[in-house]
Write a protein that binds this DNA or RNA. Structure first.
Lengths: 179, 179
DNA sequence: GTTTTAAGTCAACAATGCTGACCCATTTCG
DNA sequence: CGAAATGGGTCAGCATTGTTGACTTAAAAC
């Protein structure tokens, strides 16, 4: 019985204390820091919108859909799937909720009537605005404090981290890209 | 019936097509872009480690725990909770799995024997290394391409986006901070 | 007129958050 | 010393959001 640890087989004797953490080279520490940066910044950035979402019984997935539909009015379901990289079923849940509650409207395509062109309703645009405003504060504060040059660097690095596909999407001016 | 849309009440007539997306001011577009950057960079960065994790039947939550224990050898459970900002129960699931499978070791504190000091076992450190290596490529590529100045900017902006608490943690040299 | 394609749907499952309610061992404090 | 506070653990149940697999329907393409 190792004190409070009960006898749970779970106890493993400590490896002589701090396993000396290799500390390979300097840039290694930089890379570790980048992990932290991404984790914290993303977590806290997304959290900003959560309060508003909770009020409405929506989740982050809904926010993402609203965001990308707002940025790409008339986007098709399959393009949206390609951007989000989730399955049709996952999107369906979220999208149906948004349509049911009047945040998103869908119209059949003109040329190809199989397509469902997605747009935000006014209600949807208003919600997206609200969510955006919350997050915008964060960003603009951070941008302001860091300065325009830092912003340039930020963009460059972030672009470098993402997949080529995402980079391409972003280069498409935010208009619906072709998967 | 409106073609393929069946009769699902779900159909909402299109709002005259692209609700003109206000386009308030220039900096607004910048902020929107930042949302995209964060979403894509974070998604693709975390994805990098997923393959390795899947092999082992572990998830991202396990990775996070490994990461922060690795960076803060001897961290207590409550400090880890404070860093991750999740509940004890959520952490327990993940931590128990890691201990059971020999990735993490725990030792009672010397001064205060209620504490459980967490460290990576060699096996755990090796796994963390593996996961890290995958992600390191991304980062170092991005850093290299963007240049050292951009990296500075990246850090500044990311720090600005996160909560003060996270910033403080990071300033603690990555050594276990006091909640 | 057959085959693709865009979209929708049912069912079931897994990971990871959460809350609420307790228990135990240790430390602290009156 | 004895009570309260603290660090940690656990059971049970639930929500969100991701996954697979299998199948349908409507429209387009060939």
């Amino acid at each position: 019985m190792t004190g409070m640890l009960k006898d749970k087989t779970r106890f493993v004797p400590p490896p002589k204390l701090p396993p000396p953490t290799p500390v390979v080279d300097l840039s290694d520490a930089e890379m570790r820091m980048a992990q932290d940066l991404l984790f914290f910044a993303y977590r806290d950035f997304t959290n900003v919108a959560d309060q508003v979402l909770e009020e409405l019984g929506l989740g982050r997935a809904h926010h993402r859909a609203l965001h990308f539909i707002g940025r790409n009015p008339g986007i098709t379901v399959s393009s949206l799937l390609a951007v989000l990289r989730i399955t049709k079923q996952s999107l369906a849940r979220v999208l149906n909720a948004l349509v049911d509650e009047g945040f998103v409207a869908q119209a059949p395509g003109f040329e190809d009537r199989r397509l469902r062109l997605l747009t935000l309703t006014e209600k949807g645009a208003a919600l997206e605005r609200r969510l955006f405003d919350a997050q915008r504060n964060r960003i603009s504060q951070a941008y302001k404090r860091a300065g325009p040059q830092a912003v340039q660097g930020f963009r460059g690095v972030m672009r470098g981290i993402m997949d080529k596909g995402a980079r391409d999407y972003m280069d498409g001016t935010g208009a619906a890209e072709d998967a």
